[in-house]
């Protein structure tokens, strides 16, 4: 399609008055033509002005929208990495910067699927996440060196304190330069088994899941391997199994 042919069809395009095939042809040209882009933008403003009418939406419509904000798209995994001492689990990196697009969602799903496979392997040897944590706690107690204490005495370590909206400390983590991190202590009350605490890294302003911590976190370890590194850590309460996006507002947050 030539420029002149496309230019003539910009007004019908702005009114959505082209058939699908012609529309694609014109849009393909517009993508590469700044002059047509500018003209189309102006025509769409005119069309939108013509279409400005007002009607009160039904009161329940917003609730319908709000109820669908965190719908899990088909094919997305239902389980997320469980955070345990890192000698037991491959670290889950922060796999994206910014919002999850349809394209990156596939990548997230692939990474999470790999993590799910690891979790299955862990389950065989250790049982449920609850069991894992109990066993690991026991293992840690028996070990000669507590990794948390070790981290706290490692040069360059950073303390990350997560506070809630009332500025109360909810959890404290220690993060090493290598990206290795541990939960030092927390004030997170035990949840019902149908919920879990989930740890997020804030990357470019968007939360990226690091992993789920279970309903009653005790020993938690993780490794941050993303670039750029998260600017903050955050905790939310999610349905058991975790969420790809926070289903609830952030419980506590702290700068890294």
């Amino acid at each position: 399609m030539t420029h002149d042919e496309a230019y003539e069809l910009l007004a019908p395009l702005a009114l959505d008055a082209l058939d699908a095939v012609t529309r694609l042809d014109v849009e393909r040209h517009v993508l590469e033509c700044l002059r047509c882009q500018g003209e189309l933008d102006t025509l769409r403003e005119v069309a939108s002005a013509m279409g400005t009418t007002y009607r009160d939406p039904p009161p329940e419509l917003w609730e319908k929208i709000a109820g669908r904000l965190y719908e899990r798209p088909k094919g997305e995994p239902s389980s997320l990495p469980v955070l345990v001492p890192n000698d037991r689990i491959v670290p889950i990196g922060l796999v994206r910067a910014g919002r999850v697009s349809a394209r990156t969602r596939g990548y997230v799903a692939a990474v999470s699927a790999a993590a799910a496979a690891i979790i299955v392997a862990l389950a065989v040897s250790l049982g449920s996440a609850h069991g894992q944590i109990a066993n690991l706690q026991s293992a840690l107690n028996k070990s000669n060196e507590n990794p948390v204490l070790s981290a706290l005495t490692t040069p360059g370590h950073q303390i990350v304190t997560l506070r809630n909206g009332q500025h109360h400390t909810v959890a404290t983590f220690v993060v090493l330069r290598s990206g290795q991190g541990y939960l030092v202590r927390d004030a997170m009350p035990a949840l019902n088994n149908n919920k879990t605490y989930q740890l997020w890294g804030i990357v470019n302003g968007a939360p990226v899941s690091i992993g789920v911590m279970g309903p009653s976190p005790s020993q938690v370890s993780f490794t941050l391997v993303s670039s750029p590194s998260p600017s903050a850590l955050a905790v939310t309460v999610e349905p058991a199994g975790g969420s790809l996006k926070p289903a609830r507002s952030i419980l506590a947050e702290g700068a890294v």
């Binding site: 279409g51 400005t52 009418t53 007002y54 009607r55 009160d56 939406p57 419509l61 917003w62 929208i65 709000a66 904000l69 910014g98 919002r99 302003g205 968007a206 939360p207 996006k245 926070p246 507002s249």
Partner: peptide
């Protein structure tokens, strides 16, 4: 883009009626 539901709700408050009005028309 930072997952603020409150911001989306405010956008809906400002423009939901217009969006609904045009779709209804």
């Amino acid at each position: 883009a930072r997952y603020s539901e409150v911001a989306l709700a405010e956008i809906y408050r400002r423009h939901g009626g217009a969006v609904f009005g045009l779709a209804s028309r």
